[in-house]
């Protein structure tokens, strides 16, 4: 296998198995070239290895942004309660795992700064649902202006897998990219370190294709497996979509700020 194909190999991480390094693990995804999320998945994961998408093409794209030192992406992380969303964010941002993690009160998102290349910095706003919203659908406010989405389920909880479809529909109904297309959603099968897995890999494989996810992989926030790799995959996709120039408003809309002129008495007409 050539160097470039390494990025596109399908490999299921197993705790304690061979290939402990991150090199061999890869995401499963399709339609890598343009991410037009049309309904006909034509590639199988195995095909992806020979996909013309290459590292060099990829870096050509970021070349455009050399003048732009920083990109900002908003990524939302959703899924049923207790599937491990907060642990995942914590592992990714702080490289820690705590069993009894409590959401930070009063904070909307965690920020992760990536040195994407020598010339490119990427800032990720990771919007974890406040643990408190775990029993419900999200407000549209939460989804607003998101560039990417992670939908997570627990491999040991069949129900949480079934509900990912509801989450996907909720996202698609409440936000789109600027051009009206759905935002890229990655499906993560968390807790792959646990022995009692309930969902067959082939089932997930056909599920993600049918439902227009950009890719899926197994992860373990606890063991730190595929956490960085999967996020890198998502950032990759977002970079290619040419978004992330900030969370700017739709042209002409206003954000209220205190800096606006103070009330004047007297005639303002």
């Amino acid at each position: 296998m050539s160097q470039q194909n390494r990025r596109q190999l399908v490999f299921w991480p197993r705790v304690g198995g061979a290939g402990g390094g991150s090199g061999g693990r890869q995401m499963s995804f399709w339609d890598g070239s343009h991410l037009s999320l049309d309904e006909s998945p034509t590639h199988t994961p195995a095909d992806e290895g020979s996909d013309p998408e290459s590292e060099s093409q990829f870096f050509d794209t970021i070349d455009k942004f050399h003048s732009m030192p920083e990109k900002l992406f908003k990524v939302i992380i959703i899924g049923d309660p207790t599937v491990g969303k907060t642990s995942f964010v914590q592992r990714y941002v702080q490289d820690m795992f705590k069993r009894d993690y409590k959401g930070t009160v009063g904070v909307d998102f965690a920020l992760k700064i990536l040195r994407w290349s020598d010339t490119q910095t990427v800032k990720l706003q990771l919007w974890d649902i406040a643990g408190q919203e775990r029993f419900t659908w999200m407000t549209r406010v939460y989804y607003k202006d998101a560039h990417g989405c992670v939908i997570m389920f627990d491999l040991s909880n069949k129900n949480s897998f079934a509900n990912t479809l509801k989450w996907k529909k909720d996202v698609d109904s409440k936000c789109t990219l600027a051009d009206g297309s759905p935002i890229p959603c990655m499906l993560l099968a968390n807790k792959c370190d646990l022995p009692n897995r309930q969902i067959d890999q082939m089932e997930i494989e056909s599920f993600y294709k049918e439902n227009n996810f950009i890719g899926w992989t197994e992860t373990s926030a606890k063991e730190g497996l595929m956490v960085h790799d999967s996020m890198k995959f998502l950032v990759d996709v977002m970079m290619r979509q040419d978004g992330g120039n900030g969370l700017e408003n739709i042209s002409g809309s206003l954000t209220l700020k205190n800096s606006a002129s103070q009330p004047r008495k007297g005639c303002s007409c």
Partner: peptide
């Protein structure tokens, strides 16, 4: 509602 949740309010 979002502010409420961010400060610990529980939603269902």
């Amino acid at each position: 509602c979002r502010l409420c949740a961010v400060f610990g309010g529980l939603y269902h």
